[in-house]
């Protein structure tokens, strides 16, 4: 090699030895400026920075604009674009077959709050180990702009129709159902969403992120409560967030009175810096009340709404699955031994 040819700098890798490209995906086919594309970038940052091996991730989705996004991140992870509203049960099945898989599920407000509400509810109840993202824009984009069940009362559609039905608050619902990690964020707020994403990845059980993500084509006009302008104006962050993974200790000491921290099952820590008022995200009843109070004031409360540090058993533990992925079990583990097999039949004589 001649002296004047510069050696190309080696592409940086994360702690698992992957370059960032392994966490990216195909170019998005969503509308230019779509909030969902920002969420995709935050998802990529979360996995890349934490150094999760993408080969052991399964990314799943339902149907809708949001559900197209798994094609746009983690190219080296198996993906499954399932059926409208039915991603949670497919994810549960995949986890049953291989308990070593890390699951991320992307859904929309149509998936979660309407057609797939039953699945969402039961996924939370089972405490499936999954990062469950709701890309929430209050509108059906792929069918060109009908209200979804998360649209606020009084919000106006592009065509002028006013929503008169109360919205379904998926965060309140998740908390009531016993979800152990419930956060809300805004697609445009990387500083908030990336730590929440990392917290969700580090959580063991269902971690729900409701991310308000304005639809630039069908819900970004005046009168919509989910336009970029409306969301920015009403966004009230609960705290400033920092995430410290278990493999890196925080550089600065916790400042009592100003900061709180919560330790996640893998030893990682989420640190919350007080903003207007102190907020304790481990108080379940307070969390539900705080969301309701903010809503009454027309505020969109964002941040880590609720986290349970003494969490319920996640699904795999509850089902007492063996450590070996079930798909890898062969004749030796599956067959009833011959003498026992014959005994069963003799009992029926």
């Amino acid at each position: 090699m001649s002296a004047d040819t510069p050696t190309p700098a080696a592409e940086p890798t994360n702690r698992s030895g992957f370059v960032k490209n392994a966490y990216e995906g195909l170019p998005s086919t969503l509308c230019s400026g779509c909030g969902h594309d920002s969420i995709t970038r935050h998802i990529i940052s979360g996995y890349w920075e934490l150094g999760v091996n993408p080969h052991f991730v399964a990314k799943l989705s339902g149907i809708g604009c949001s559900s197209k996004t798994p094609a746009y991140f983690l190219r080296e992870a198996h993906g499954f674009n399932t059926v409208h509203g039915r991603m949670p049960s497919v994810a549960a099945g995949a986890k049953l077959a291989n308990n070593k898989l890390h699951l991320i599920g992307v859904s929309g407000d149509g998936d979660t709050a309407s057609i797939g509400m039953g699945q969402f509810v039961h996924m939370v109840r089972r405490n499936l180990e999954i990062v469950y993202i709701v890309e929430n824009n209050g509108v059906y984009g792929l069918t060109k702009g009908q209200f979804s069940a998360t649209a606020d009362i009084g919000s106006v559609l592009k065509k002028g129709e006013v929503n008169e039905l109360p919205d379904i608050d998926v965060c309140t619902m998740a908390i009531q159902l016993g979800c152990n990690y419930v956060a809300r964020s805004f697609s445009g707020d990387a500083k908030q969403m990336v730590p929440l994403m990392k917290g969700a990845i580090s959580h063991n059980g269902t971690a729900m992120l409701d991310v308000v993500s304005p639809c630039v084509t069908f819900n970004n006009h005046e009168g919509s409560t989910r336009s970029f302008t409306a969301v920015k104006a009403n966004d009230v962050p609960l705290h400033d967030l920092g995430f410290h993974p278990y493999f890196q200790t925080p550089e600065v000491e916790l400042k009592p009175g100003e900061e709180r921290e919560v330790e996640l099952p893998d030893g990682s820590v989420i640190r919350m810096k007080k903003l207007a008022a102190d907020y304790d995200p481990t108080d379940r009843m307070r969390a539900i009340a705080t969301i309701a109070e903010a809503k009454a004031k027309g505020q969109l409360l964002t941040g880590l709404l609720y986290v349970n540090t003494k969490q319920n058993k996640p699904m795999v533990e509850h089902l007492k699955l063996t450590g070996t992925p079930l798909h890898a079990l062969g004749e030796k583990e599956c067959l009833i031994p011959q003498d026992a097999f014959e005994k069963i039949q003799n009992r029926w004589r």
Partner: peptide, 9 residues
């Protein structure tokens, strides 16, 4: 989901 991930289901 299980069949996709390789289990007999």
């Amino acid at each position: 989901g299980a069949g996709w991930a390789g289990a007999r289901a």
